[in-house]
Write a protein that binds this DNA or RNA. Structure first.
Lengths: 246, 246
DNA sequence: GCAAAAGTGTTTATATTACACCCATGG
DNA sequence: CCATGGGTGTAATATAAACACTTTTGC
């Protein structure tokens, strides 16, 4: 229910301790066989000089998701057009009192899965923005360590039963690249032939690219190219060998 | 990132349009083979007289989850102790500008799965509180129709790969009751023998109750009793016949 | 006895797993 | 020609689905 604020009956917006709302992003990508996270170096207190997830305050006329896209474009130099098309997913909201020393700040966290992008340039409030390997990340500002860990867990689980993995790939990709996404996020090796059959047996997961141009990931035989299909769910799911879920 | 609010550098908490934060709950139960939702009738404008999800404002020293438990206890007459033990799960946050006509209100929505409880008594801001069959619910206040639909979808998906279904059951339950949870939420009939094997084959899903007392759900042969086990994930998952996922 | 639900067994289909093997390319 | 990754085939195993049958209760 959404009745009037406590201690107030006449909707006096300023009569109670205000909340600030931020949108923070865990932007993940697979680069050189390792999971990477987009981080910014904070330019001001608190936590000046520390690494943090990109994000910022939600403006009065924005939804949290709009704010997330805007902040991402501002802080990384992505074009607004690219940011508008990104796969963004709401992760959860962090509302513990005291998570920001200045005032009551509630953060709506998002997860973004992106293909390997060019190195970002800093901008906005961020002193600099960089991709860092997930394993090397420690001691982020605020409760961002926890947010990042939650994002990683969620992504690992969603790969099992959704077609999300294609979001890590460029528009056209080989099945080897797609498999590498799973292997990187799950940290296991998958059987190549079985992976291929599984993916191709799922209607709408990937669609072969017509023109028989082929491309190689480096060495070896050139592979057929695919695009992401229209399906979003995976049935039956692709379970990881030593499975866990959310 | 969480730098200073826009248009402000000195952390003047009152210099920008304030947000209010609410916690709203989709409390679901299975009753007489149908999914039911706990709703309250609004006692004041806006939407006075309309049905809404229980919930209310997050207080300055609370997290959203604490607020959700407190509001649930207040509005339904559940003991604070019961509310403290409920299975509560954050669903998502709704932040569209304009979702509340009075001011900028952001809602953190939770889903609660509860066993068949006694009819609630109204309290707090609510004129009355009632269980209503999910299928009959329409035209809730604010964007609560959407929140409720999201909650239902999430619960249906989570039954597949988590042990959540036991949250709908009382402390001791029969496998028939557990199966009815699945059948009700998914709207399909499940094969009894196969369901039984599947549940018993999952370590930690249910634990048999020692004393061989047995109980019947109504007619038929008395069934063995079980308690919820310590497992939270289901591996491999229990897929619904005509599957979908989140 | 009959209906209803529990519980056991069995058969068949489908999915997963673990390999062996050939193909095309770069160096 | 050999290392590397793409792609095909196949047999062994595990899981899921369908259904027949016995048991125990209330009425």
């Amino acid at each position: 229910m959404t009745s009037a604020p406590p201690e107030v009956e006449g909707y006096d917006k300023y009569a109670f301790e205000p909340f600030a709302l931020t949108a923070d992003l865990a932007v993940l990508t697979v680069r050189e066989g390792r999971l990477h996270v987009l981080l910014v170096e904070r330019g001001q207190e608190p936590y000046a000089g520390a690494w943090a997830l990109p994000g910022g305050f939600v403006l009065p006329e924005e939804s949290a998701e709009q704010a997330a896209r805007r902040e991402l474009a501002e802080e990384t130099g992505l074009s607004g057009d690219t940011a508008a098309r990104l796969h963004l997913e709401q992760l959860r909201t962090y509302s513990d009192p005291g998570r920001d020393p200045r005032m009551r700040v509630v953060s709506v966290a998002f997860t973004a899965l992106v293909p390997d992008l060019p190195e970002p340039r800093g901008g906005g409030d961020a002193a600099q923005a960089r991709w860092l390997p997930y394993e090397d990340v420690r001691h982020l500002a605020f409760d961002h360590d926890r947010i990042l860990a939650d994002a990683r867990e969620r992504v690992g689980a969603k790969l099992e039963y959704s077609c999300l993995a294609t979001a890590f790939c460029p528009a056209e990709f080989t099945l080897g690249e797609l498999r590498q996404v799973y292997e990187t996020v799950w940290g296991v090796a998958l059987d190549r032939p079985n992976f291929r059959r599984k993916v191709l047996a799922t209607p709408g997961f990937v669609r072969p690219v017509e023109g028989p141009p082929r491309r190689t990931g480096g060495r070896g035989k050139p592979a057929a190219l695919y695009r992401a299909g229209e399906a979003t769910a995976l049935h039956p799911p692709l379970l990881r060998p030593e499975g866990r879920s959310a």
